[in-house]
């Protein structure tokens, strides 16, 4: 069984929920990214979403965009990122899902990229700019490599299409809490719980929720109805806040924030 499936099966058995932190790989540097993955595991995260920096991340807000620009300015490439994943994989039991623009995948070659990523220890993929109708090839390749492929479902997605997307997804479905781009929000949309309940009728896959989830309270609110809460910009902003203070400061600052977020799982 794929590691992602195994993780959600175990959580379901324990009646527990998952925290899924998002990190831009290479911010502030790849060695620190590896330590942050360990810190996430220690804090109680179940799966980490690894953001591959892209020059034109149109679904991302200013915080993640700035983080990606910072990494690209350091000259890091996909080979470096996958090597850093391979370096820490043995120390990690958490699932690793690559969040990567299809522009990058297409250039490297779908087949080569997916195989190399799985070889490095990636368990699953999210291609945020590859919609259902363009995804046949990628889906086959991901499946062939024993990984999972999760598609996004937006508030603007009609119910029938949401069903199709859920049917095409493996591992989990990714429900966007709100329309628009990534970024921290003061509150969750009031209709979120209803949307989760509607989606439940359409799929047996675990439902994860991201975009605008940024506090322990919001994690708690999300997992009251969903199976996992994804937190991105709130972490990435905190990295930028202490980047200047060096790797140890980043790891300890982020480690304690992820522990705080994890308290939301138990409220």
């Amino acid at each position: 069984m794929n590691r992602i499936d195994a993780i959600f099966t175990r959580l379901a058995k324990d009646n527990a929920k998952a925290l899924m932190p998002y990190l831009t790989m290479g911010d502030p540097d790849l060695k620190t990214s590896g330590k942050l993955l360990l810190a996430a595991q220690e804090a109680g995260a179940s799966i980490c979403e690894l953001g591959f920096p892209f020059s034109d991340p149109i679904a991302d807000g200013p915080v993640i965009q700035a983080s990606m620009s910072y990494v690209l300015d350091q000259g890091l490439n996909v080979v470096d990122i996958l090597q850093s994943v391979a370096d820490v994989r043995e120390q990690l039991e958490i699932g690793l899902v690559a969040m990567v623009s299809y522009s990058i995948v297409h250039r490297l070659g779908d087949e080569a990229f997916i195989a190399d990523a799985v070889g490095a220890g990636i368990d699953g993929f999210i291609f945020p700019d590859l919609p259902l109708e363009e995804s046949d090839k990628a889906r086959d390749l991901v499946q062939k490599n024993g990984a999972i492929l999760s598609f996004l479902i937006a508030p603007t997605t009609p119910p029938k299409r949401a069903e199709q997307i859920a049917a095409a997804s493996s591992g989990f479905v990714y429900l966007l809490a709100r329309a628009g781009i990534t970024g921290e929000q003061a509150s969750l949309p009031p209709d979120l719980t209803d949307r989760i309940e509607v989606l439940r009728q359409a799929t047996d896959l675990p439902i994860t929720v991201g975009f605008g989830v940024s506090t322990a309270q919001q994690v708690s609110d999300v997992v009251a109805a969903a199976d996992a809460a994804i937190v991105g910009s709130a972490l990435v902003r905190r990295i930028a806040d202490v980047r200047e203070q060096g790797s140890d400061a980043v790891v300890s600052h982020l480690g304690s924030f992820m522990q705080e977020l994890a308290t939301g799982l138990k409220r």
Binding site: I58, A59, Y102, S103, P128, D129, L130, P131, E133, E134, F151, L152, I153, A154, P155, T156, T157, P158, R161, I165, L176, A179, G180
Partner: peptide, 18 residues
């Protein structure tokens, strides 16, 4: 499907699909 030969298509985030 929006293809001119092998070029074109629809490569966008789901949020814009509708």
């Amino acid at each position: 499907r929006g293809y001119f030969g092998e070029f074109g298509g629809i490569f966008i985030p789901e949020t814009l699909r509708a």
